[in-house]
Design a protein around this nucleic acid. Structure first.
Length: 264
DNA sequence: AACAGCTTCAACCGCGGGATT
DNA sequence: AAATCCCGCGGTTGAAGCTGT
């Protein structure tokens, strides 16, 4: 199956985008919407390939991009999602409003990979320990990580017209230890740890089902499980939860892929 | 002040998959 | 059914900034 290059590379600009190019691209996409990237440069009068335009828009110019520090909560979420999904950055980014797959990938490669590997080699890698560490005032405080943005590489003048959506409702401080025991059929201690991590993660996002709306996981209803202990306890005691607890990764990926679990 | 090594992250590249012709 | 188009993804690169000496 033959393949033509995405664009002729002759006469095209490469490298850092200029403020003017940014303005042109932003104006064009704002007026005409996303998509049709291949023809966009010609129509917009940009000497860039369509892929480059798409990347620039999605990773930098989109008005809903949230720039700056990745919060501790977001960090926790990225680590957990990565544990679950691996390097599926677009999926992970889909659960973090305002964050791009490229940003998360970079952040992982530069910062979180070390942290995650340190955590996984730690004898106590489960969520309870992380929660304790996070809440204990005397436990080795992590200085706030500041992501530096470069000022000189390209003049970024775009200021989002409105604040990005609030962060997802992930609360590491929630008391997960009081959740009902779950039976996952795991055999090794490590697997138990992993499953507990996963289930705690699902728990803390609000495990919702069997209420007719078909939503298995609803990030918007963060308080549901905690505010409704009887329902949660009931869920834990039913076969349906055990079935869910036995979901394999593919099934979980399916859940993540489903439209039922957006953060936005 | 100057240099080297390290870190960060925007941008590029190649590939795969779905849609279209 | 085959060929081609288009989009999106993940891996990689390299320029610029930072830090230590």
């Amino acid at each position: 199956m033959g393949r033509s290059p995405c664009c002729s590379k002759e006469g095209l600009n490469r490298g850092a985008w200029t403020a003017m190019e940014d303005r042109i691209l932003t104006a064009y996409v704002t007026a005409n919407g996303e998509g049709k990237w291949r023809n966009l440069p010609k129509r917009a009068g940009l000497k860039r390939c369509g892929k480059s335009c798409r990347l620039r828009w999605l990773n930098y110019l989109r008005p809903d991009i949230k720039r700056g520090n990745i919060s501790h909560d977001e960090e926790e979420l990225i680590i957990r999602l990565h544990k679950l999904l691996g390097n599926r950055w677009s999926l992970i980014a889909g659960r973090l409003p305002g964050r791009t797959d490229n940003e998360i990938k970079n952040y992982w490669n530069t910062t979180l990979r070390k942290k995650a590997s340190a955590q996984s080699t730690s004898p106590q890698s489960n969520y309870s320990r992380q929660k304790r560490l996070a809440t204990e005032p005397n436990s080795s405080p992590q200085p706030a990580k500041v992501i530096r943005t470069r000022a000189t590489r390209c003049t970024k003048v775009l200021i989002p017209s409105q604040s990005p959506p609030l962060l997802p409702e992930f609360h590491p401080s929630q008391d997960l230890d009081s959740s009902p025991p779950l039976h996952c059929g795991a055999v090794t201690n490590e697997e138990v740890d992993q499953d507990l991590d996963l289930l705690n993660f699902l728990d803390c996002r609000g495990f919702q089902d069997s209420h007719g709306d078909g939503a298995l996981l609803d990030f918007q209803s963060k308080d549901l499980a905690l505010e409704d202990p009887p329902m949660f306890k009931d869920l834990a005691n039913t076969a349906s939860l055990e079935d869910n607890a036995n979901l394999d990764l593919d099934s979980l990926v399916y859940l993540l892929d489903s439209e039922e679990w957006p953060l936005h």
